[in-house]
Write a protein that binds this DNA or RNA. Structure first.
Lengths: 232, 232
DNA sequence: TGCTTGGCTTGACATTTATCAATTGATGCG
DNA sequence: CGCATCAATTGATAAATGTCAAGCCAAGCA
């Protein structure tokens, strides 16, 4: 990997505190690649040869079973995916494809495991990252088991609004069909769910969503930090 | 903690390889307690002061939101729970209660974090354990997003059969009401789902389940190692 | 401009799942 | 034993969600 790519990977929590020599060793075997949209990066069931780092663009993690498919998460810069598979040297549980033109760094899994063993700071960072990922999935799981589709959408919109800076109007960061899949419903039902939120001051125009009265929406959504706060 | 309790905790993957001195330090601040059934051990939202280890009995991890409750997992000996919260020093995302009379070891979270920093072997074990937990939740999440309730029950029964040694007849390890919650359905629906599996050679008598023709059931269940194999 | 494409929406309908009420059946207790 | 309790089951009904078919509409293109 050219040295010019070092800084942006280095800025990741996962790598920012580790020893310089170990970091260089990691980068030595790595490389950065540009991908067009809609390219399959990995497929569930394959062995995990590389830890992936999204430098720009975005990546959809999804799974399939019995001809059904569901979107599990979207990975945005700058973060990693399939860390758990890398650590355990186990098959991927999810597939990944680019959503848009993306730059991805690929770090050999064996190198990650090797450096983990000799760099305690890196090990600590990995554990924190993994624990964070774990808690993220637990929250998603609670979301889908405890809430109806309308409630999931309401909470999703409130989270997006926060992410977008709290303005009443903001853009959905993803196609509605993928959002529907992520929220565990069909595109048709997502349309109806948006209509179902009209009494709670939500209006939609294309990808532009307006929440006129967030407190009103919150009476329905009942957001909880133990489900909706992805930063803790 | 009395020394007599050391060996059974020590046998956990998490602790089996770490340095003896560090292990003793961990145990020094820990203690073991006996709990009757149906006792709340921790509640979601609380801060994570102790890593818990189930030595005997069993513990239900569950979550609540808006007066609804769902069972997330059952912890059986000998394993830990709320490792992620301990590592990140973050609030619990799940509550825990004993299902039966249980012996639980409590290890101060701060000690776990301290020893993690100075014992690379322990750190490696924690990472592996966490990665395992992470993959477990991902599998549960795929299960509930990709399958109908009938399919989830079918796969659950096949997993239990395997766990029970592969015999055609085996015991459900939990009450049906909790199983229903774990599988993301109501008790009423679980009853109906069992009936719906009769054409696939499944019969139920109380907690005793018989799968007369597992291959037949598999044509419906379509089990996948990427969802149903909790050992990888 | 007209055409095609694909995502989105809508309506009608089917399926799945939940809810409510009542009953059964096993268990424990005085 | 008789009674109370609670999980499990069953039936009737309602609500949520999915499926299918059709139409809309904006984007891209000849």
């Amino acid at each position: 990997m050219p040295e010019s790519h070092y800084p942006e990977v280095r800025s990741l929590h996962l790598f920012s505190e580790m020893g310089e020599d170990n970091y260089r060793t990691l980068m030595r075997g790595s490389y950065v690649q540009n991908f067009p949209p809609q390219i399959d990066l990995i497929h569930e069931g394959e062995s995990s040869d590389f830890l992936h780092v999204v430098l720009s663009g975005s990546v959809d993690l999804f799974s399939q079973w019995n001809r059904r498919e569901t979107s599990m998460a979207t990975v945005r810069p700058i973060s990693t995916f399939i860390l758990a598979a890398t650590i355990r040297d186990a098959p991927y549980l999810m597939s990944a494809r680019t959503l848009e033109k993306s730059r991805i760094a690929l770090i050999p899994s064996q190198d990650v495991r090797d450096i983990f063993d000799i760099d305690a700071v890196f090990a600590r960072a990995i554990v924190r990252e993994l624990a964070q990922c774990y808690r993220g999935v637990v929250k998603s799981h609670k979301d889908i088991k405890l809430r109806t589709s309308l409630e999931r959408l309401a909470n999703y919109l409130l989270r997006q609004q926060t992410r977008a800076g709290g303005e009443a109007t903001f853009e959905l960061p993803t196609e509605k069909r993928r959002l529907a899949s992520f929220l565990g419903m069909t595109p048709e039902n997502l349309s109806r769910a948006f209509k179902g939120l009209q009494p709670y001051s939500v209006t939609v125009d294309g990808n532009r969503v307006t929440i006129a009265d967030a407190d009103d929406l919150r009476t329905l959504a009942k957001p909880s930090p133990l489900i909706d706060d992805y930063s803790s």
